[in-house]
Design a protein around this nucleic acid. Structure first.
Lengths: 158, 158
DNA sequence: ACACCTTCGTTCGAATTTGAACAACAGGAG
DNA sequence: CTCCTGTTGTTCAAATTCGAACGAAGGTGT
């Protein structure tokens, strides 16, 4: 037998996919981070918080739910929401039905900031990712990463 | 005209691809980070440094070149190489042809650590990404992200 | 009502990351 | 050689991130 305890290493295609994913991910984040910071004074994470809030009913979300959507730690979210509060872009509101609960809420100023920051961000996402790929590539990407994400979400909460 | 200054927002497919990318990227990093830390006491970044060094001729790379491959900041690399030095997994060696230059070099202990850590890491990458996708999806992913990365590398150094 | 286990969000300390500033050097044009 | 420009790696302060521990509450079964 050739592989008693030998792990199955990645072949050339598999390695290309994996390396491509890591590299593209790092490069994209780096670039978007720079653009958002220079253009609007926001970090990518802060921008994403605003996006998720604005997409939520009542422009507000529970902290835990928001942390899940963002795929970040609860403590990390606590920190960032505090930052956004200081900037006047978000606010905390206590939950009526659960004393422990806290809603993060988008302020008018936060909505305005998003309106101002979104176009430049979306344009860059287009320029660096979306418009670089064909329609078919995009479709495969969406389905593939959707599958991967779904699978990861599952054994995350067993 | 429907769009004087209106940005081209992302349609459903495009949004799915972009969100999928962000979410999958975060979830994967989070998971791999945990596994590596628990299994070998390494961060993903430290692991990647060892990998790149072991793949380089002479098991060593110049700091700047390594930072490029890792897609990280020079100062960040300085920090991590120092950490690896303290763990005995890497060492610094000055460059003969350039007094300013510094080589990061893999130590025997570092090679051994990699030999021990790699199987578990690769297995998880397989389980979470590679083996979840079909051969076609993998091929498309590799080519797409390859293109994206290449494009990003270019206007990074103009 | 009681004990028990889970969930919620925050706090805390430690680790990491980044960009700007820096000093030292390389490399070429003149 | 000499000036000038770009590179190299590090240092520094500031910002961010995480996990573990925590107090306070919810929810359930008995």
């Amino acid at each position: 037998m050739s592989s008693l305890n030998e792990p199955r290493w990645l072949d050339q295609d598999e390695m290309a996919a994996w390396r491509g994913f890591v590299v593209a991910s790092n490069l994209l984040n780096r670039r978007l981070e720079r653009q958002l910071k220079e253009d609007s004074g926001l970090s990518h994470q802060q921008y994403e918080i605003l996006v998720h809030l604005s997409a939520a009913p009542g422009d507000s979300l529970r902290m835990t739910e928001l942390a899940d959507k963002l795929v970040t730690s609860k403590s990390g979210l606590t920190y960032q929401v505090t930052q956004l509060e200081r900037m006047g872009l978000a606010a905390r509101r206590s939950c009526p039905s659960d004393v422990r609960g806290v809603f993060a809420e988008l302020t008018d100023q936060g909505r305005e900031m998003l309106r101002q920051a979104a176009p430049g961000h979306v344009a860059l996402v287009r320029e660096l990712l979306i418009d670089v790929l064909t329609r078919e590539q995009l479709a495969v990407l969406a389905e593939s990463l959707g599958t991967v994400s779904a699978r990861l979400r599952l054994d995350e909460t067993p």
